[in-house]
């Protein structure tokens, strides 16, 4: 199965069970992890990827990612550093993997969107513009996950 656009991507994600959503969301976050310097996120994402994760581990990893997310917000009135802001969206992607899920939530889609924002912020910071291949990378990651 190959995924070539957001419509197919979203549809494939919505068919995944909760654990599958978390694991693939973690892979989306991992793909932009290099944009963050926060060591807490590496641990949180590694935990989210595991198939044998316990509820307690999930709660602890969520708390860690939440702290990283809150710590990395750009405060009102502060000059935005787009590199740091990329790190913030990595944290939010990690958080999306681990947050308690409500009916109607799509954590993997949410993580994918935050990961794309992280890449967009990197593009703004570097002056390279906002065209990037993150969406295509996510299609590939999901395809591999589904075929794996």
């Amino acid at each position: 199965m190959a995924i070539n656009n957001d419509s197919e991507f979203k549809s494939a994600l919505s068919n995944l069970p909760r654990a599958g959503q978390r694991q693939v969301a973690a892979r989306f976050a991992e793909n932009v992890l290099a944009l963050s310097k926060d060591a807490r996120l590496k641990n949180a994402i590694s935990t989210a990827k595991r198939t044998d994760i316990t509820e307690d581990e999930l709660i602890a990893a969520f708390a860690s990612a939440k702290k990283a997310s809150v710590d990395s917000f750009t405060q009102c009135g502060t000059e935005c550093d787009w590199n740091s802001q990329a790190g913030h969206f990595v944290a939010r992607a990690a958080l999306a993997c681990l947050q308690p899920v409500q009916p109607g939530d799509s954590p993997a889609w949410e993580a994918a969107m935050h990961a794309r924002m992280a890449r967009t912020c990197e593009g703004i910071a570097s002056g390279r513009g906002t065209d990037n291949a993150e969406a295509a990378a996510q299609y590939r990651i999901l395809t591999e996950f589904l075929n794996g």
């Binding site: 967009t120 593009g123 703004i124």
Partner: peptide, 9 residues
């Protein structure tokens, strides 16, 4: 340009 980036997203 940052607003445009968000619009695109």
């Amino acid at each position: 340009p940052a607003v445009l980036a968000q619009i695109k997203h």
